[in-house]
Design a protein around this nucleic acid. Structure first.
Length: 732
DNA sequence: ACTCTTACGAGT
DNA sequence: CTCGTAAGAGTA
């Protein structure tokens, strides 16, 4: 049955035909009948086969001749939820990433709007101001029960209940001393006032001021700007000042960060400097909190937002600046669903909005550097501050120095030395590769996850075998997969294992472990950071998290416990990532010290990348790597896409892809590689095969992808196959 | 993705 | 002959 809102109209006047992006993973849109003047971007509930789905109205269209159209079931909103800009973004995402339009449009909506139900109304707000002799002494927003209690207290002309005074932080004595009629003013349903940045300006160095001056003078149509600045060179000050100018011009700013862990620190820096509230958007927030920010951005009441990947998909009222911090970071790439890259989406959005965009990094991606070299992007270099000492870099060959504990003697000596001088030491452990895996002491088999082709890892507290890829877990004892003996022991060393060794070696020294098991919330960061920043001697032990963003000014020695694992990868980006990691980790140390050092433990001391690391800077390493990329014709000197197939039988997945390859006549510009097993060839019980497409022309590659989609629409893949396309892939 | 339809083998 | 699972097809 139709709801009342449509009852009167639908039967007689539902005669306008609309094209709808239904939220199903199909590469087609569907036409429906609806009342006149339903605008593009409006959500609709529609009949779809034997069920009901939600979709987004795209356009008025002509009735297709061969089908009988059905009318909308419901129109949950009176206004379009997606503005024209978002619709254009959805269309672009669908075209560029070859994802179904319905999936792309759904992605642009906050989670609470995806089900097609009416959105929760904003809570009524009541601002209470207490004034005394015309002077404001307190103000507070009240909602819910407290609001009710206060309103009825005022209406009955009685005294304000004590509880309310407590809520307002006012003592009873203070209240009694006030004259009744000037005690309370009520301003119901007040809109939050759009915050204005205060004039709390920073003093910039000459180098920072020069670059900022350049940026502020740019026309809106300028090419993307790149800020190459070593850690501690002061990129953030430039971000903040550019935002200030943009906000003062009445426009909104979007700042993208790679990790949720980095947002609290950045938020406090931005809000302190700009003297205004800064909104955030990341996966750690509730759906409702995200919806409120999303709505605030759309209506323009939220002026500045810091967020992770998905924040680039939010609607804006008048976006005036986008900043992508740590633009090289791989976590900007989405690894399931619509596999978009937030940095690339940001560049498209800036172009579409006609607003400037800044990509900042100490270690820019080779793609970005190549664009700068070609003159498509404009590169600014911010050097390390003169008052910061150089960092001495050295290698330790761990094939020549015994490492029973994972630490070589030279590293142990240096750690002791730095600790004795009252300084902090940071040990970086790349968890991948040197995995805390389980080995059977009876037969030597390294244990694999029963569902995946990955090795299981061992966690000590609580004692468990875990698969990081599918979540499988088992409590020891666990029978060896090969000989069923229960004599498994951890192989190599993980953070937990190394932690034990460190405690044994330096029992009286403070030890801070920083990894994802340990730090889940902003509060955890705050506590641990406060202690570290107090400056007392100690050891910081951590994984990737340590390499990102946070500054530890009292660290004078950084040790990379095992640098080699990153070099064994089949991935063409592994050297680039390694160069970035080495540079980022080194940058964490010695911000104030003249004699800071970095020690890298490796089995491959002759590797050219390590040689360069000892002698040159990131830019030189990256230039060399870019040259190597050109030789092998990999991105940014070619364009890649993968076709992925998952199936319970590895052979079936491979067969599907090779059949696909055989039916397509690839143009000259495009070469197909594979099918081959994915790097993680089996996950969560499914085998994954990949077919890699490489092209010298983006256009030709996209035409091939179109062909694949058309082919699969016509000849449905065998059941049990799940397949998909990944444009500009990061995982193989 | 979801749901309904059809196909075919084991069990009565 | 019926029930249960698996593969197939359509969604406006």
């Amino acid at each position: 049955m139709l709801p009342d809102s449509l009852q009167s109209t639908t039967q007689d006047t539902a005669n306008t035909v609309y094209d709808v992006a239904v939220f199903v993973p199909l590469h087609t849109t569907f036409s429906y009948l609806g009342p006149a003047n339903v605008r593009a971007g409006t959500r609709v509930r529609v009949p779809f086969g034997h069920r009901e789905c939600t979709g987004i109205v795209l356009d008025e269209t002509n009735a297709p001749a061969d089908v009988t159209l059905k009318p909308f079931i419901d129109i949950p909103d009176t206004e379009p939820l997606l503005p024209a800009d978002s619709l254009a973004l959805g269309h672009w995402l669908s075209r560029y990433y070859h994802a179904p339009l319905g999936d792309c449009m759904e992605l642009l909506l906050p989670a609470l709007a995806r089900q097609g139900t009416a959105l929760p109304a904003p809570k009524p707000r009541l601002v209470v101001r207490l004034t005394h002799k015309g002077r404001a002494i307190a103000a507070q927003q009240l909602t819910g029960k407290k609001r009710q209690a206060l309103v009825s207290a005022l209406h009955s002309q009685g005294d304000i209940p004590q509880a309310e005074l407590k809520a307002l932080n006012i003592s009873l004595a203070t209240a009694r001393s006030l004259e009744r009629d000037e005690l309370v003013q009520i301003q119901p349903e007040v809109q939050p006032v759009a915050a204005q940045p205060s004039a709390n300006t920073l003093s910039l160095t000459t180098a920072q001021a020069d670059i900022l001056g350049h940026l502020l003078a740019l026309p809106d149509t300028a090419e993307p700007q790149v800020l190459l600045g070593a850690t501690g060179s002061g990129k953030t000050e430039i971000y903040i000042e550019w935002c200030r100018t943009t906000l003062q011009a009445g426009q909104q700013c979007l700042v993208l960060l790679p990790e949720i862990g980095l947002t609290p620190q950045m938020i406090s820096r931005f809000s302190a400097r700009l003297g205004m509230t800064v909104a955030q958007l990341h996966s750690g927030m509730s759906d409702l909190a995200r919806l409120r920010v999303w709505q605030g951005l759309q209506d323009g009441t939220v002026r500045l937002v810091l967020g992770t990947r998905s924040a680039v998909l939010a609607p804006f009222h008048n976006l005036g600046l986008i900043i992508v911090d740590e633009e090289h970071d791989g976590s900007y790439k989405q690894h399931d669903g619509v596999r978009y890259h937030a940095r690339d989406v940001a560049i498209w959005r800036a172009h579409q909005q006609g607003c400037p965009i800044l990509l900042g990094s100490a270690t820019p991606s080779l793609e970005t550097l190549a664009n700068a070299e070609r003159g498509r992007y404009n590169l600014h270099t911010l050097l390390r501050r003169a008052d910061q000492g150089e960092v001495a870099r050295s290698l330790v060959d761990i094939t020549r120095h015994a490492t029973t504990t994972g630490l070589s003697n030279p590293l142990v000596e240096r750690i002791t030395d730095h600790l004795q001088q009252g300084q902090q030491v940071m040990l970086f452990l790349n968890r991948r590769g040197m995995a805390p895996s389980m080995v059977c002491t009876a037969c030597g088999t390294i244990q694999q996850c029963p569902n995946c082709s990955a090795y299981v890892t061992y966690h000590q507290r609580p004692a468990r075998l875990l698969c990081h890829h599918c979540g499988w877990s088992h409590r020891p004892p666990y029978p060896c997969e090969s000989c069923h003996a229960t004599t498994l022991e951890p192989l190599g060393i993980g953070t937990a294992g190394l932690e034990e060794q460190l405690r044994a070696h330096w029992p009286d020294v403070a030890l801070w472990r920083i990894d994802r098991d340990n730090i889940k919330h902003a509060d955890d960061w705050a506590t641990i950071n406060a202690e570290i920043h107090s400056g007392k001697a100690g050891i910081l032990l951590g994984t990737q998290l340590l390499a990102k963003g946070h500054d530890y000014p009292n660290v004078t020695l950084t040790g990379i416990v095992d640098a080699d694992s990153g070099l064994f990868s089949a991935d063409f980006r592994s050297y680039e990532r390694m160069a970035q990691l080495l540079t980022q980790v080194s940058g964490r140390a010695g911000r104030r010290s003249a004699r800071a050092e970095v020690i890298v433990q490796t089995r491959l001391p002759d590797h050219p990348l390590f040689h360069q690391f000892l002698r040159t800077d990131y830019f030189t390493m990256a230039t060399q790597l870019l040259h190597d990329r050109q030789q092998v014709g990999m991105p940014p000197f070619s364009f890649l896409a993968t076709v992925r197939a998952d199936h319970v039988e590895e052979e079936q997945a491979a067969q599907f892809l090779s059949d696909l390859g055989n039916t397509l006549a690839l143009p000259l510009a495009v070469t197909g590689l594979g099918p081959m097993p994915a790097l993680m060839s089996k996950r969560a019980g499914l085998y994954r095969q990949l077919w890699l497409l490489r092209s010298t022309e983006r256009k030709t590659l996209h035409a091939v992808l179109e062909q694949i989609i058309a082919h699969c629409a016509q000849h449905r893949p065998p059941s049990g196959i799940s397949w998909g396309i990944d444009v500009d892939p990061y995982e193989f």
